[in-house]
Design a protein around this nucleic acid. Structure first.
Length: 875
RNA sequence: GCCGGGGUGGCGGAAUCGGUAGACGCGUUGGAUUCAAAAUCCAGUUCUGGAAACGGAGUGAGGGUUCAAGUCCCUCCCUCGGCACCA
């Protein structure tokens, strides 16, 4: 018995090679490795192009988000290489972080070992994707040869006074006695212990990012290659606002409360002040007030995230203390409020219920006075008893300021306060200094030694790096092992020599990811953080990564770049010239309710859907037990929803080229992309169709005079060059890879329809096939490599240049224009490209179908849009 | 809650500068091929009326500007990302 595939291969029709990714892909990868195709060095004769995809956290498994991100970067890199540029595309590992600690607790493996094994696995998977990386520059942030330089840099910043220590709030698990990350707090409780989480104040290190706030905002203007939405988010995050800092004297102890407001024009409407629960004033009153102390205690049980603070139920408690209004001298009560944060500004705010929605809600809740001091600029009236009026307007009930508009009153009130030394105009930022301390193990040790006599002292350069001990044992509380290791923390003071204690906190992992892009340029340098090679390659010409990094990572690395510039390490002002933010990868989710009231998530690979004759899904059934499951729509691929698709399996089944093709064809890069198994099969189908047409023409080496083609061949050749023109624009300027692929599919469809066996036809066909293979080679490089050889070329396709548009081929004599009557399409006309408007108008009116709609009407106007349409306005 | 996106056929998406809405792909329907199936190929496929020619409606909802609106303006609804210790 013969297998079907054998029967097929014996049929002369199918004697040509079958497409087989399992031989094609390793062959191409071997060629690139043998020829060191992607190793680059500084070459001043070529234009450089630094293309960087955000490096992954080495979880051990490549997921579809990586596949998409790295395919996009690879396509751009290979396209730019074909434009003749010296392209650098490196890869490395964002190797510190929480998951390694979790794995250590769960599987009893030290984080270092777990991480190393994961890196080895993921490197293999990335290579199977055929990504054009210069692996000689690979780096892992958990290695001392990397993190020693950020320790060194931190000590430089410390010398410059850009680093300081202050108390700040963390999530504290009172049972496990550990600090928890926000994601480790679930419904207000520690994820492991289940204990109610408390806020705790501890001393931590901060970087003065606020000192660069203005530059971070101002230079967003220069980032023309960034998406507008990311630029807006960056500006809003820094949040520069002009306002007035106002001093309120407090009756009880003659202290003053300083508050910041952007609306000094509403000052006369202040009816109370609110301070944070942790404010010294609140704490001192609470000493003799048990109820207030209880309230403050209750306020500790909230998560320290802004989203939580903003959405909690607003609660407050009166301190019984009165403050003096700086202008009227009236007494206003001071309240403690759970939504005022001690870490923002001074931890106190002035409240104007009539003109601020949050203050209004608070005053309604506790029956506090609402005093309207602004009225609308027009003649409308507002009732501040029903809602706050937050617009600017004209001042009322404000004594000497009555009748001024909000803008003028801003200045006059600020001036009056300044004269009385009760306030000043200031600029306030929403941006807070960057807290870089983490009380975790798997991170870069902060290079500081605490001495009882000398205070915190930076570790001297000669003693760097401070190595993180890698042979450690975790207990189930998840506390950092180095905090229990005297051999790590016991040391001597570098300045006085007495016994001292090493800092056991580690850096925020954003610290590592803030400068890795620069280190790739000189990853082998053991003598310095960076060298002159950084200035050849930087800034990064194209950065690609998830939209979820639009604010934090990108802001921190912009900041870090400026710090490095001011240290003389780099010359440029900004790290990333162009930015492409890719959307997430989504997949179908299915579930069943379980007995515990929760949901059992079922992997989409185990679900079959039934459709009606229009293709609408009418039922989803598990293939495991044949029973119905409930569809919960599309959501981000994740473990928790059990809707991940493993790229490893797909690479084996379909090959990397198919996966690459599908992952950028399914949606434009900046939008989220929905996973579809049948879509992958469609991508494979296209690859096989191209393979077939190309391999049927490998012996076709006919060249012919393109000046004397028949009309239909001329049209086909025009299609080839129109496609090339579009694809060049789509890939080089717009990153519209999905439409670039669609255009190639369209061209392949046209070429497949050609059954003319003449020499001229075969020459055009060959030109078309070769153009497609070249245009798609950045996307499906393995197949491009193989087909290019088969088509008879000596040079590998990786070294070929991007094809050139033949402008002669684009010339057209006649074009089609549509004819509208009152904006509705009623006919089509063929027009000579040089026809004047008058003759086009006549042609349009003579169209048979158009006449049906203009008879018995009067033509009012005829609009001709060159090359597109004619619109006849008639009634 | 605040900041920033998105919403177009059964589905993913296209329409780049205000000018033919639905390219391309998936799914689906019919046909060819096959003993049969898979694969492949051909044709149809926004809804709706019609045998067709050709009409009517249609880009989340409602209003507006314009000869012309998916695209611009206003109001609203839904949804996704981020919110500083996930990375």
């Amino acid at each position: 018995m013969l297998h079907d595939s054998q029967k097929l291969s014996m049929n002369p029709e199918f004697m040509q090679d079958q497409y087989n990714h399992k031989t094609i892909e390793p062959n191409a990868q071997q060629y690139w490795a043998d020829n060191k195709s992607f190793q680059v060095s500084e070459d001043t004769n070529k234009e450089k192009f630094y293309c960087l995809s955000m490096f992954p956290y080495p979880s051990g498994k490549l997921h579809m988000g990586h596949v998409r991100n790295y395919t996009i970067g690879d396509v751009i890199s290979r396209f730019q290489r074909m434009q003749g540029k010296n392209v650098l595309q490196p890869m490395g590992w964002d190797a510190f972080g929480l998951p390694a600690e979790n794995a250590a607790i769960k599987h009893n493996v030290p984080p270092a070992q777990w991480t190393d094994e994961n890196i080895a696995d993921m490197r293999v998977q990335l290579n199977q994707m055929g990504l054009a990386y210069d692996w000689t520059r690979e780096l892992a942030t958990c290695k001392p040869d990397y993190y020693r330089w950020e320790q060194w840099f931190f000590t430089k910043l410390y010398e410059k006074g850009l680093v300081y220590r202050k108390k700040s709030t963390v999530n504290w698990d009172p049972v496990d006695q550990t600090v928890l990350a926000n994601e480790q707090v679930v419904d207000g409780r520690g994820w492991r212990s289940g204990a109610l989480v408390e806020q705790k104040e501890i001393s931590q290190w901060f970087l003065k990012i606020t000192a660069y706030a203005d530059e971070l905002i101002d230079e967003v203007k220069k980032l023309q290659g960034w998406p507008q939405r990311v630029r807006t988010m960056q500006v809003n995050w820094v949040g520069r606002s002009e306002g007035v800092e106002i001093k309120f004297e407090v009756e009880a102890d003659f202290q003053t409360l300083e508050v910041f407001t952007t609306r000094p024009d509403t000052l006369m409407g202040v009816t109370y002040l609110a301070v944070a629960a942790q404010h010294p004033l609140a704490l001192s009153v609470a000493e003799n007030n048990a109820e207030l102390a209880a309230f403050i205690q209750a306020c500790k049980h909230t998560k320290v995230s802004e989203a939580d603070m903003a959405t909690i139920e607003k609660k407050g408690y009166p301190t019984g203390i009165m403050a003096i209004h700086p202008l009227t001298g009236e007494r206003v009560p001071v309240w403690v409020a759970n939504f005022v944060l001690m870490s923002y500004g001074s931890g106190a705010v002035m409240s104007v219920p009539a003109h601020d929605q949050r203050d209004w809600e608070f005053s309604k809740l506790y029956g506090l006075e609402i005093k309207q001091v602004i009225r609308p600029s027009n003649q409308n009236t507002v009732d501040t008893a029903t809602a706050a009026f937050t617009d600017k307007g004209i001042l009322i009930n404000s004594g000497e300021f009555n009748g001024q508009n909000s803008y003028d009153a801003f200045d006059t009130i600020a001036e009056k306060l300044a004269i009385q030394k009760k306030g000043n105009k200031t600029i306030n930022y929403r941006l807070r200094d960057w807290g870089v301390s983490r009380q975790r193990y798997w991170g870069c040790p902060i290079p500081i030694i605490h001495c009882d006599d000398c205070g915190p002292v930076a570790v001297p350069e000669k003693d760097l790096p401070v190595k993180l001990p890698e042979q450690v044992v975790f207990d189930e509380t998840g506390g950092s092992p180095i905090k229990q290791m005297p051999e790590f923390y016991e040391t001597t003071c570098p300045s006085c020599g007495k016994a001292a204690r090493r800092e056991t906190d580690t850096f925020d992992t954003f610290f590592e990811s803030s400068w890795y892009y620069a280190r790739y340029t000189c990853a082998d340098n053991d003598d310095g953080m960076l060298d002159e090679r950084a200035n050849y390659w930087l800034p990064v010409d194209q950065y690609i990564g998830g939209i979820e990094h639009a604010v934090l990572h990108l802001l921190y690395s912009r900041f870090f770049h400026k710090l490095m510039r001011d240290e003389g390490l780099v010359e440029s002002d900004e790290p990333y010239k162009n930015l492409l933010t890719q959307g997430m990868v989504l997949a179908d989710t299915y579930y069943r309710d379980n007995e515990k009231g929760g949901k059992d998530w079922i992997n989409p690979q185990d679900v079959k859907t039934k459709t009606d004759d229009k293709g609408r899904v009418i039922e989803a059934i598990s293939t495991l037990d044949g029973k119905t499951v409930i569809s919960a729509g599309m959501s981000k691929m994740s473990k928790s929803k059990n809707n991940g698709v493993d790229p490893k399996y797909l690479i084996e089944k379909y090959g990397a080229d198919t996966l690459r093709l599908f992952s950028i064809f399914a949606a434009p890069p900046n939008q989220s992309m929905e996973w579809s198994d049948s879509g992958v099969e469609g991508a494979q189908r296209f690859i096989k169709r191209l393979w077939r047409l190309a391999t049927q023409n490998i012996n076709n080496h006919i060249r012919t005079d393109t000046d004397n083609l028949s009309d239909s061949l001329r049209a086909l050749r025009r299609k080839i060059h129109q496609t090339l023109q579009k694809v060049t624009d789509d890939m080089g300027e717009r990153f519209a890879f999905n439409t670039a692929i669609a255009a190639n599919m369209e061209l392949l469809n046209e070429l497949s329809k050609l059954h003319d066996k003449s020499d001229a036809a075969q020459a055009v066909l060959k030109e078309g096939i070769e153009t497609i293979v070249l245009m798609l080679s950045p996307i499906i490089p393995h197949m491009g490599h193989e087909l290019w050889i088969k088509l008879g070329h000596q040079k590998a396709i990786i070294d070929e240049a991007w094809p050139k548009v033949d402008t002669q081929a684009l010339v057209q004599n006649n074009i089609e224009m549509i004819v509208q009557v009152n904006g509705k399409v009623r006919g089509k006309i063929q027009v000579n490209v040089n026809a004047d408007d008058e003759s086009i108008k006549i042609l349009a009116q003579n169209n048979e179908n158009v006449q049906r709609f203009i008879e018995n009407t009067t033509i009012r106007k005829i609009i001709v849009v060159k090359g597109r349409l004619v619109n006849i306005v008639a009634n």
